[in-house]
Design a protein around this nucleic acid. Structure first.
Lengths: 197, 197
DNA sequence: TATTTTTTATTGACTGATCAATCAATAAAA
DNA sequence: TTTTATTGATTGATCAGTCAATAAAAAATA
């Protein structure tokens, strides 16, 4: 049985290799040998550490999720106002570390796999809930709660939508215009509450 | 060589079976035998008609796309005003024929496959362009063109985003709330142009 | 119309390739 | 000396794609 704690040297290398491979190929349909090869080890070792392929994929998803989460926390920590908090959450999703072709492709691939795999579905739901509550933490200070709920829902949909559309284009993702689009929506909504009809 | 025109009896059955199978399983990772079996024929026949698996998948995507397109045309035909045209396009995307679990799942699966397959990517780009221009056909009558571009972009992202998020939940999709969300965005934007800041 | 010929529809059985997963063996640490 | 790390080789399953054979339709011919 693989040691889970101490020196996750190879574990980490395998997860990184998995992200790269999945991202490049745009699918979870990559072989264990391919991933292992890129990590400089044999496929047998990958099985040794992660049990089955599922295990590696889940660990990989968990890793992406926790990186995103760490980034969000960091960004929220330096935000003072409610308004800033919302923008911080948005910004992180399109930051240089997150909005990369490989990561975007991997996200998309995991979304699809989640339809087959219950553990992955669970992970993605955790992410969705977390995103929602992070957005709410700012939005509730800016508008009535039921409206905040709807806006959070919309922002989340926009983010996912921009990711999926981004995956279809080639070249470097344009984070700036993506953020601008979401911010424009938010700004419009806020205006609506400052000068009510 | 398969006859392309006349009695697309089996062709159609195979495409329908493909949609069902892909939709249920939420992945393009379905076997030719599975699809063929559901259509009540042998897998060899599927190859006879579509050449390779790719061929069947592309035909399936094309079919979904053309159904959607037909629905949009129909809806646009009965729309009088620019405002109605925009709503019509939105409504069709969440109509009973389109916003079904199987179709949604299939869309998502095709999106991912498009990262590998150039023909599928091309098809999805055609769809994206078409959606954009359909939205613009209404929006240009309601706001200045550059703003209309941005709003069309946002609506498209919202639609894709709502699809992808929908795919993660179970149960019947809630089209009503999805439409409401997009319409709310549109309405907010329109208000902004009626009473400018 | 009846008969022959050609084309199309359809299948079961087979092949070759690909891969996840296992395992026994060895090296290295603890 | 026991546990952990690591591998090459192997196995078993799964599938896409092929093919030769047969049935059924359609077209051509008598």
């Amino acid at each position: 049985m693989p040691k889970l704690g101490m020196p996750p040297l190879r574990r980490r290398a395998l997860i990184d290799a998995a992200i790269m491979t999945i991202g490049e190929r745009g699918t979870l349909d990559v072989t264990m040998s391919e991933i292992a090869g890129r990590a400089g080890v044999s496929s047998a070792l990958a099985h040794h550490y992660f049990g089955a392929k599922d295990g590696l994929l889940q660990a990989t998803m968990r890793h992406i999720l926790s990186e995103l989460n760490a980034d969000v926390r960091k960004a929220l920590a330096t935000s003072r106002t409610a308004r800033e908090r919302v923008s911080a959450v948005i910004a992180v999703n399109f930051s240089a570390t997150q909005f990369q072709p490989e990561i975007i492709a991997a996200w998309l691939a995991f979304y699809v796999e989640a339809q087959k795999s219950q553990p992955l579905r669970r992970l993605l739901r955790v992410y969705a809930r977390r995103l929602h509550s992070n957005l709410m933490s700012g939005l509730t200070g800016l508008m009535p709660r039921p409206e905040a709920e709807r806006v959070a829902e919309a922002i989340a949909a926009l983010i996912d939508g921009l990711y999926i559309r981004r995956a279809l284009k080639d070249g470097t993702p344009n984070a700036t215009s993506a953020v601008a689009l979401v911010e424009d929506y938010l700004e419009t909504k806020l205006l609506q509450h400052k000068k009510p009809a």
